[in-house]
């Protein structure tokens, strides 16, 4: 099919090959917030556990 394939052969040339730090800042922030969420929720239940001893 001779349709516009732009997103099927996606941006082969645009995807950066280097992984310089600035390009993953958002990922770091995102994962670290997950970490924070895990620590907070775990602590909350741990204190609930201690409270109920």
């Amino acid at each position: 099919m001779a349709k516009n394939n732009s997103n099927l052969e996606p941006n082969r040339n645009h995807v950066p090959t280097e992984t310089n730090s600035s390009s993953l800042k958002g990922t770091l922030i995102f994962t670290m917030s997950i970490g924070l969420f895990i620590v907070l929720s775990w602590s909350a239940i741990f204190f609930l556990f201690l409270n109920r001893m």
Binding site: S21, L24, T27, L28, M32, G35, I38, V39
Partner: peptide
């Protein structure tokens, strides 16, 4: 391993 991934895994595994 990307530097940020090292930071993340250190934090995650550390927790």
């Amino acid at each position: 391993l990307h530097r940020y991934e090292k930071i993340w895994l250190t934090f995650g595994i550390g927790s």
